[in-house]
Computed example of a mutant assay.
Amino acid sequence: MFSRIMTGIDGTQTSVRVLAEALRFASQEKAVVLVVSVLIPVSDTLGPGPGFGDTVGLSLTLKARAQVALSRAKDLFILAGVEGETRLIDPCDQDIAAVLLNEAARWQADLIVLGTHSRHGLERLLVGSTTVSCLRASHVPILVIPPESCRVAAGQS
């Protein structure tokens, strides 16, 4: 049914679960996987504005973390017996959801697997939700994986 599955990872525990689910699904479907990590713009992580903190050092740290996560994804491809590729993308001041959807279209994904951090209220208003933005704009089906805390609360393991 699905032959090209794309997933986005951000180094969080939720994204590890998302990748595991995407690989499990890809293994069942005999699909190829693209794992994407979009660099977080340093301006989105700092707050007040220019001159606040070590932006070069932070940028390099975020890039290194993303590269490690993508390297681990490659190892998981082998363990899962799945064909896959990874991609690190600089958003160039674009919205992360738009970057993910553009990459899915460019790569011709027929399924996108994303996670949600289940933010609510003020936190969601301030931080936003990449997954919700993707759901609203995508022309490709999206499988959303909730955080572990939602599964535990629902009595699942």
Rank of each mutant, 00 (worst) to 15 (best):
S37I: 00
V42Y: 08
P50C: 01
P141I: 03
G49T: 05
L100A: 06
G11W: 12
L135M: 07
T86N: 05
H139S: 13
G8L: 07
D54N: 14
G115Y: 10
S37K: 13
L111D: 01
E103P: 06
R106W: 01
S149N: 11
F2I: 02
Q67T: 09
V132A: 14
F77L: 03
P141L: 04
N102G: 15
R136C: 06
H139D: 12
F2G: 00
S129I: 06
D54C: 07
A98E: 15
L58F: 04
S71Y: 05
R87S: 05
G115C: 10
L125M: 13
A73S: 10
A20R: 12
A20M: 09
L101I: 02
I96L: 12
Q156S: 07
G8P: 05
F2W: 00
R87T: 02
V56T: 11
S27G: 15
D95C: 04
V36M: 07
V113M: 08
S59W: 10
A104F: 02
E83N: 12
P91N: 01
A69M: 14
L34H: 01
S15N: 08
P146M: 01
L111Y: 02
L111M: 07
D44S: 15
V152C: 04
R136T: 07
A137Q: 11
T131D: 10
E148M: 13
L76M: 13
F25E: 08
A20D: 13
E83T: 12
F52N: 03
V33C: 00
N102L: 11
P147L: 06
D44H: 10
E85L: 03
L76Y: 07
L111A: 03
V36Q: 02
E148L: 15
L62P: 12
T116F: 11
E103A: 12
R151Q: 14
P41K: 01
V56G: 00
A109R: 02
C134G: 02
G128T: 00
S43C: 00
V82F: 05
F52C: 10
F52P: 06
A137W: 00
D44M: 06
L122F: 14
E123R: 15
L39C: 06
L46M: 12
G115M: 11
V132P: 00
S71L: 04
G57R: 02
E123L: 15
A97V: 04
A153S: 09
A153Q: 11
P147H: 08
K63L: 02
E103T: 13
Q28D: 10
S138E: 03
L143Q: 13
S37N: 15
S71I: 03
R151A: 14
S37R: 14
S133D: 15
T130H: 05
T12L: 07
P48A: 11
V35I: 06
I89K: 10
C150N: 13
L19N: 04
E83K: 15
D95A: 11
P141V: 06
P147E: 06
G57Q: 03
